[in-house]
């Protein structure tokens, strides 16, 4: 199954799925720390200068990097929505999102302060409007791409919004 690229999209689609199938859909969060001793991770990637590389590996023991996969699955329709992250900064936000989806499951009214659907819709339409109305000159195009890395480091959700502000 393909992973969705942003947590917002996962959140939005999961909300829609839960609205359609509140009884059968379930959300599984998998927190995985890989076992680097397992054969899967023992495949040698290097081809040349084996000896040298081995020395380096021994000098710096690998630290397993964990990841988190959120998966919404509805067995009745067979829909699977997945999102994967490896950033600790995402955890709080994602669990907050799980709480919001949990309200759908519990058939509780959606909280006013978190109108998820309108937010995602609004963002999407804004995006289109700005792109259509303001044809970005080619010279300025590299600027947003340069700005990407710090935003990514700063933590997922805010990244997209900041970028849009910059365009305006």
């Amino acid at each position: 199954m393909v992973y969705l690229s942003t947590s917002e999209e996962w959140q939005h689609r999961s909300a829609l799925l839960l609205q359609a199938r509140p009884t059968t859909a379930r959300i599984t969060t998998k927190y995985k720390i890989p076992n680097l001793d397992a054969p899967k991770y023992q495949k040698p990637k290097k081809r040349k200068r084996d000896g040298e590389m081995d020395d380096k590996d021994a000098a710096a023991p690998k630290v397993p990097k964990a990841w988190l996969v959120l998966k919404t699955y509805d067995p009745e329709s067979g829909v699977v929505l997945k999102f994967k992250t490896d950033r600790a900064a995402d955890v709080g936000r994602l669990i907050n999102g799980l709480g919001r989806l949990g309200r759908h499951m519990a058939a509780l009214p959606v909280k006013d302060e978190a109108p998820l659907d309108t937010i995602t819709h609004g963002d999407a339409s804004n995006d289109h409007v700005t792109e259509a109305a303001v044809p970005v000159p080619k010279e300025s195009a590299p600027a947003p791409t340069d700005a990407k890395p710090p935003q990514a480091a700063g933590g997922g959700g805010a990244g997209g919004k900041k970028k849009k502000k910059g365009k305006k």
Partner: peptide, 30 residues
């Protein structure tokens, strides 16, 4: 249903505390 809110607040705390192997925010790069 009444406890959903409080449950998820604690849930987030437990997960944030427990999931220590995820990538930390890299401040030096920023």
């Amino acid at each position: 249903p009444d406890d959903v809110e409080t449950f998820y607040t604690r849930y987030a705390d437990v997960c944030k505390a427990g999931m220590q192997s995820l990538k930390k925010r890299d401040r030096s790069k920023r």
